[in-house]
Structure formats: structure tokens, C-alpha cells
Design a protein around this nucleic acid. Structure first.
Length: 272
DNA sequence: CCTACATCCTGTATGC
DNA sequence: TGCATACAGGATGTAG
């Protein structure tokens, strides 16, 4: 499940390879219409025809391709990934989006569960309207976070997963950050003390930047480039470690559901 | 304001 | 072995 570090890794991989390319045509090998978030395949063809990719970056979990006119965005959701090599015929049922460039090369968007989306737009205002701050930027400070927590009465995990507050965190890194800061995933935001909040702020930054260095976490589906896996899975302290000893206190790690999401935490270290 | 639940999907895991 | 069902989850919309 790609979160900020995985999306950053994909962007880092793609940007130099795609910058400067000109789009010749758009295809949908498996014919899945849902991938076209705003419009039909025909709309995308018209919008993208002869457009040149200027640069590629990330905002939250969105991949942004800036064109010489307008933007093409992708969200990988659960299983979306980019492939540059020509896939086997048997893979085509998973490929919902394909760009053909005028130099003969291709970009394939492979997405087994079909949750991933491609977006076309003239500007990024709509994106800014729905996304909060970047956690690795200077906007995220413990002072800011403390104010935000005080202003709301929400459970910590769903609050941190809310992209309108902080953009880029997902199920794995929220569990990791809460464990690091010793905060219960169901703890109510306005009750969190200043010291815990400072720890949480540091934990978010530390974990995300470390995960980027490891090129993300591969649980099942995520990979980048030629099927390369992220190496952060070995560094996970709590996610997926059900019934294994807490690496701080050796209490066995519990799994519960918080807002319908599988959640791992330590009952001893992370009190409500 | 906040939480719960359904929806979109399909490969993998589990149950009988 | 094989069929049927449950489960996983990011974002969004609706209901309570």
C-alpha cells in the first residue's frame, strides 16, 4: 500500500526517465473505465495528445506530471504501479492505462485491484483544497500539530490518516509513528500532552525520511522500477507484528480495528 | 463535529 | 482437491 515514501520512490525513479517525453497516444489495455477519474478515454486522448512531460513530483500520495499545458496526475491507491518495459500479454488485464510516447517508448499503469486513478486538469487548486501539509516540510512543527490536536476531538489514528490534515501518511506509517511516540491509536487528540506531541512530530519525520532512504516498505504489492522492492519492512517496529514481542517492553503486540483499519499497537507502551 | 459503514476491486488465505 | 467465502485497504459518500 503505497504511502508517502513509496510514492516518493516511484517519483524519484520515473522523473529523469520521463521528463521531456511527448505523448503520442493513450490506451486502456484492459478497458477499465474507472481509471479515468475525470472524463472518458476520448477526453484523456484529446487532453494529452502531443503534450510534453516537463517534470514529475509528488504531493501527498499523488504523482504529478506537469505537462507543457496542464497536468496529468496518478494515485496508486493499493496496487497501482508503473512499468516501463513491455508487459506479457497475460499481464494486460491488469493494465488500465498506457501512455505511448513519440520515441516509441511506453509507460504502463498496472493495477490489479483497479483502485488507482489518473486525473487530468489545468491547475492544481483542487488538489490543494483537499490536501493538508507535507509532513517532511517545515509546515509540520510540534507547535502546529499541538494546536491541531487541541482543536479536534478525534481518535489519533483516523486523524493522522486524514489527508486534509497531513498529506501522505497511511496505515503502516501511522501505526509506526504512534508506537514510536507511545500514543494509543484510539487516544482522543485533544487529550494528548505537549511532550507526546513533540515526540509524535519527530517520529513522523524520522520514520518517513528513513523509509524513503530504504525506498519504501514492500508488504505484498508495492514495487518500483523493474520489480524492485522497498527494504523498510525489516525496519518496522510494530506494523504486522501481531503476537510478537514489543521491541521496547516485550509485551506481545495486539491487533485491533480502528475505523475499519487493521491496527497494530502495544497495550503496555501505548495507553489510551 | 465525529464515527460507522458501504462502495470500489481481485489475489490470497481460510474453511469445510 | 476444490469450491465458497472472507479479508485486505485509500478515498469518498451517506447515514446516524
Amino acid at each position: 500500500m503505497p504511502e508517502l515514501p513509496e510514492v516518493q520512490t516511484v517519483v524519484d525513479f520515473l522523473k529523469d526517465k520521463l521528463a521531456g517525453k511527448t505523448i503520442q497516444s493513450v490506451q486502456s489495455p484492459n478497458g477499465y473505465k474507472g481509471v479515468f477519474e475525470n472524463g472518458s478515454l476520448a477526453n484523456y486522448r484529446t487532453f494529452l495528445y502531443k503534450r510534453q512531460i516537463q517534470s514529475i513530483w509528488r504531493r501527498g500520495k499523488f504523482i504529478i506530471m506537469e505537462l507543457d499545458s496542464g497536468f496529468l496526475l496518478f494515485h496508486l491507491r493499493m496496487t497501482g504501479r508503473f512499468i516501463l518495459e513491455l508487459p506479457n500479454k497475460s499481464e494486460y488485464k491488469y493494465i488500465s492505462f498506457q501512455l505511448k510516447f513519440n520515441d516509441g517508448s511506453n509507460l504502463f499503469f498496472r493495477d490489479t485491484r483497479k483502485f488507482g486513478r489518473a486525473y487530468i486538469c489545468q491547475n492544481l487548486e483542487w488538489l490543494e483544497d483537499r490536501l493538508g501539509i507535507e509532513p517532511l516540510s517545515n509546515h509540520l512543527t510540534s507547535t502546529w500539530l499541538y494546536q491541531q490536536l487541541k482543536q479536534r476531538r478525534r481518535m489519533m489514528k483516523p486523524l493522522l490518516m486524514d489527508q486534509r490534515l497531513i498529506a501522505g501518511l497511511g496505515n503502516i506509517y501511522v501505526d509506526e509513528a504512534l508506537w514510536q511516540a507511545k500514543i494509543h491509536p484510539k487516544a482522543i487528540s485533544f487529550k494528548i500532552g505537549k511532550v507526546r506531541c513533540i515526540k509524535l512530530c519527530l517520529a513522523i519525520k524520522d520514520i518517513l525520511s528513513s523509509a524513503i532512504k530504504y525506498k519504501g516498505t514492500t508488504i505484498i504489492d508495492y514495487s518500483y522500477g523493474s520489480n524492485k522492492k522497498g527494504r523498510f519492512k525489516k525496519e518496522l517496529k510494530v506494523f504486522g507484528r501481531i503476537n510478537k514481542p514489543c521491541l521496547r517492553c516485550s509485551m506481545s503486540i495486539a491487533k485491533i480495528f480502528v475505523s475499519q483499519r487493521g491496527t497494530y499497537y502495544c497495550k503496555k507502551c501505548q495507553r489510551v
